[in-house]
């Protein structure tokens, strides 16, 4: 079943988070006016991004200087004799037609730039076709890319409050790390400003206080924390609201109910 929507309503960084945490495999088709893009994911990691139809063609490997024409022809000929589970990328690596590091580096840079450009789209239809995979001859990255740092880079390109305020409605909110942020953070490359904010997160200071301590604007702190949030590194919480107290419990507490009463309701609904 396909997931459809518009990145105006459900942002690309949110979608990448869903793909990452859901270990999704499939093709994400995006369109914005005349522009289109196609991204493929394998178990939550990015394996290919094409902004033009020709970027899905093996000739891309020649254009990027990874192979020459003769090497590409040799790889394609070998692929024709291999089983359906083998990709052109597998053949290139197995037959040493290109050094894996060079292959990975060149194709990864190209793919990342293709994705970064998509964060500039203010809106665009998306359709995620689950379990769709690239063609066997498509230029697929040897080692799939973790989307965490793609999310961080995408968020760096956000320059308006609107989207940030959806997740961070107030600078009076407190930031704290989720479980084992160090492990999650390994895939994320932080810029110097981001490290300054990262180092100030202690579960007590509000965003406004972090802005003051880092000498960054509140907008910059919120944008950076929005990136951490989107990458699943931190959570933001409201500070407890000062409330009048009634009989030792705050008025905001839900009523304590008797188990016997709940059991009666359960039995009644079961019997309906």
């Amino acid at each position: 079943m396909a997931l459809v929507g518009n990145i105006r309503d459900f942002g690309l960084s949110d979608f990448l988070y869903l793909v990452d945490r859901g270990y999704k495999t499939g093709g994400l088709h995006l369109s914005h006016g005349e522009e289109t893009a196609l991204l493929f994911f394998e178990r939550g990691k990015l394996v290919m991004a094409a902004r033009k139809p020709e970027d899905q063609h093996p000739d891309l490997l020649v254009r990027l200087g990874i192979l020459n024409e003769a090497q590409l022809a040799q790889a394609r000929a070998s692929l024709a004799n291999r089983d359906n589970g083998t990709t052109l990328t597998d053949v290139i690596i197995e037959e040493n037609l290109a050094a894996k590091e060079q292959f990975q580096g060149a194709l990864q840079s190209f793919t990342e730039e293709a994705v970064y450009g998509l964060f500039g789209w203010p809106e665009g239809e998306f359709l995620f076709e689950q379990n769709q995979r690239p063609a066997r001859e498509a230029p697929v990255i040897p080692t799939p890319i973790s989307v965490d740092h793609l999310i961080m880079e995408g968020v760096r390109r956000i320059d308006e409050w609107g989207r940030i305020k959806d997740r961070i409605p107030s600078t009076d909110m407190v930031v704290r790390f989720l479980d084992q942020p160090g492990e999650r953070a390994k895939g994320v490359k932080l810029a110097a400003e981001e490290w300054r904010v990262f180092a100030r997160i202690n579960g007590r200071d509000t965003l406004a206080e972090i802005a003051r301590k880092t000498n960054l604007s509140e907008f910059d702190v919120c944008r950076i924390v929005y990136g951490f949030l989107t990458a699943g590194l931190v959570e933001v919480m409201r500070q407890p609201r000062p409330l009048p107290v009634k009989g030792g419990a705050t008025v905001a507490d839900p009523p304590r109910v008797k188990r016997s009463l709940v059991n009666r309701i359960i039995n009644r609904i079961k019997g309906m």
Partner: peptide, 11 residues
Amino acid sequence: LLYVIQERSED
């Protein structure tokens, strides 16, 4: 939902 409430209820 009632099972969630039940877990938090008191005897």
